[in-house]
């Protein structure tokens, strides 16, 4: 009698385990079903190209992109000894250096002044964020007109003050700066909008409390606004940095990498290598290098940022 009872107890314990296991499998399958669309899309458009790029970077290819000969790390070695690529790297870092702080600082300034409660502030907010709605192509054409050596407004203004015309996009000393200015202008809308959103989510009680204590405008900006905005600033900084490394459109429209490769940023260089010179192998190697650079910089940023960022 008692033996039978024990036996049946064991049985139920076993079958519980079985049923639980079955339920776990079913719930896992259900979860996968929901994830399926994104898994499929990511696989086709992200994971496969990524793996394929890394694979191609070890080969030489023919004009249609079929790998012909395995060359190991030759593509990379050649790349880092080529003065053109090194020039391109230098330009890219300079470009990032010009655009990221410029965009974030100007965006922050505009966001802070547009955050004031004034009449008609909506108009200014719209204007400041409007470049978000302008495509890279349209923006570039607009700036092409401004940069035009003879008819462009910029040179006309210089002429008005009796200064010599500048070849904004043709002078090697100015081309990268001109492209940077264009890029800052284009990215400003997005940065401004995100920062304004961050500013508006800061609790107004914090400022009121500081008012009662008698804190001045800049004191509040330094001790409350900037620390409270730090998560947003961090986000904007990361996104701007990645965007700057991946700049392509305005280069293609404004300078096509010239003059003297001054504005031949790395993505444009990849494009040229792959689709003008049909060197898919070396292009892939450059793409891998770009990927690694962005990955490392983002990791470093997260490590450093964690200490300075105050999440609520």
């Amino acid at each position: 009698m008692s033996e039978a009872a024990i036996h049946s107890e064991e049985l139920t314990a076993l079958s519980f385990e079985k049923i639980k296991k079955k339920q776990r499998i079913i719930s896992f399958l259900k979860g996968m079903l929901f994830l399926m669309p994104s898994i499929v899309l990511f696989s086709i458009f992200l994971f496969y190209p990524l793996v394929r790029t890394i694979y191609l970077s070890f080969f030489l290819t023919d004009a249609s992109g079929t790998p012909t000969a395995f060359v190991g790390l030759d593509n990379f070695i050649q790349m880092f000894t080529s003065p053109v690529f090194l020039q391109s790297m230098q330009s890219t870092f300079l470009f990032v250096h010009y655009t990221v702080p410029g965009t974030v600082l100007i965006g922050l300034f505009l966001a802070v002044i547009a955050n004031e409660k004034l009449k008609g502030i909506g108009f200014f907010r719209t204007i400041f964020s409007s470049t978000m709605g302008i495509s890279v192509a349209a923006g570039s054409v607009f700036w092409l007109f401004l940069f035009n050596p003879t008819m462009g407004w910029l040179n006309q203004i210089l002429g008005f003050f009796g200064m010599e015309s500048i070849g904004w996009l043709t002078d090697p000393n100015f081309a990268l700066i001109s492209v940077s200015v264009t890029t800052i202008w284009m990215n400003l809308g997005f940065t401004f909008l995100i920062l304004l959103g961050g500013l508006q989510s800061i609790d107004s009680y914090l400022y009121e409390n500081a008012d009662i204590d008698g804190a001045g405008y800049f004191y509040k900006l330094r001790r409350i606004t900037i620390p409270m905005l730090s998560p947003t600033l961090f986000f904007v900084l990361t996104v701007s940095l990645i965007n700057a490394f991946q700049t392509f459109g305005q280069i293609d429209m404004l300078t096509r990498g010239g003059p003297q490769n001054e504005t031949n940023l790395i993505v444009y260089s990849i494009y040229q290598e792959a689709f003008m010179n049909y060197q898919y192998g070396t292009a892939s190697a450059q793409a891998v290098v770009l990927f690694v650079i962005i990955l490392i910089l983002t990791l470093v940023q997260f490590k450093l940022g964690e200490r300075k960022v105050h999440y609520q």
Binding site: D203, Y205, L206
Partner: peptide, 10 residues
């Protein structure tokens, strides 16, 4: 003293 205390989180 405010209802949500208005402490500075940072």
């Amino acid at each position: 003293v405010f209802q949500n205390y208005a402490l500075y989180p940072h």
